[in-house]
């Protein structure tokens, strides 16, 4: 058993999804409770019904572990950043550029979330940065529990920046707090300008939006002003930075943002 969180093991099989045909009752939606539970003998449970007021947040377990991670980060002055985007928007590319350009100034560590491969982790490792790969299998998002276990193995240095590249998916990572300080949503100009309206939860829960691949602006229909105003409608606190990981345009703005977060003293 895992001593830190009490889970059964470090295993990835967190979900029990039984196969369609392994059970013999019909698949109606909500099963009407008609049988009346007339277990005459042998049943130890009391016959009368008890009502329990639960009032518990469904994500409370994740939120609890996220708070634990947050405490870990704060205690070590680690700036943890959760990078989310659709598949292929440029999360890994942005990290590669950033690590190469800033590694002489800042201490970095990276957690890579991916369903199957270690391709992204290999790309990060090539920059000389410490990286841990989490393969989620079928899981389409990282959760706080996975981060906790990744941290146990990697022990990022004090006063460092920890990038967490989430699984490419703009839907469910929005619901799972990892304990990060800031959430950064990345979109690219090849994705269409209605992204913020289609995936409002993600834009609402992020603090910075990076619009990537602006080198391609001449070739694609992408209304920059419209995207920005859509994003602001969803989240009026959202900061927006335009970059290209290929040409390097806009990256200094991103680097300034990053450094300002690192230097920022403990907020009240």
């Amino acid at each position: 058993m895992c001593a830190t969180c009490g889970c059964d093991s470090g295993s990835k099989t967190t979900y029990k999804l039984l196969d369609k045909d392994d059970h013999d009752h019909p698949h109606t939606h909500v099963h009407p409770h008609t049988q009346d539970h007339a277990h005459d003998q042998d049943y130890s449970h009391p016959a009368q019904k008890t009502i329990i007021d639960v009032e518990q947040d469904v994500l409370s377990q994740n939120n609890l572990l996220a708070q634990r991670n947050r405490g870990y980060f704060e205690g070590r002055n680690i700036l943890a950043l959760n990078l989310v985007s659709s598949p292929g928007s440029g999360k890994t590319s942005l990290l590669e550029r950033t690590l190469n350009d800033l590694k002489s100034e800042l201490e970095f560590a990276v957690i890579e979330g991916d369903q199957q491969t270690t391709n992204d982790a290999d790309r990060i490792q090539a920059t000389g940065t410490k990286v841990t790969q989490i393969n989620t299998g079928k899981g389409c998002h990282l959760d706080a529990h996975m981060i906790l276990h990744a941290l146990q193995g990697m022990k990022p240095k004090e006063n460092s920046v920890l990038f967490i590249e989430n699984v490419g998916n703009l839907v469910c990572p929005a619901m799972f707090d990892l304990g990060e300080k800031e959430r950064i949503v990345i979109i690219s100009v090849t994705e269409g300008d209605d992204k913020p309206l289609k995936y409002p939860d993600m834009f609402h829960s992020s603090t910075l939006c990076i619009i990537n691949k602006i080198d391609l602006l001449p070739y694609v229909p992408f209304d920059m002003e419209k995207v920005k105003s859509n994003a602001k409608k969803v989240n009026h606190h959202l900061e927006i930075i335009e970059v290209s990981c290929i040409s390097g345009e806009g990256l200094p703005l991103w680097y300034n943002w990053l450094k300002s977060k690192v230097l920022q003293p403990e907020t009240v």
């Binding site: 967190t14 409770h33 049943y43 009391p46 019904k49 329990i52 377990q61 469910c172 799972f176």
Partner: peptide, 27 residues
């Protein structure tokens, strides 16, 4: 499909509470 992990969390919470109340069925 985060709904599946949400449902798994709901089941976990409900079973924990039911067991604490010495029950074996969530009606």
């Amino acid at each position: 499909m985060h709904e599946l992990s949400i449902v798994m969390n709901i089941i976990q919470i409900a079973e924990q509470q039911a067991k604490a109340a010495n029950a074996s069925v969530v009606d």
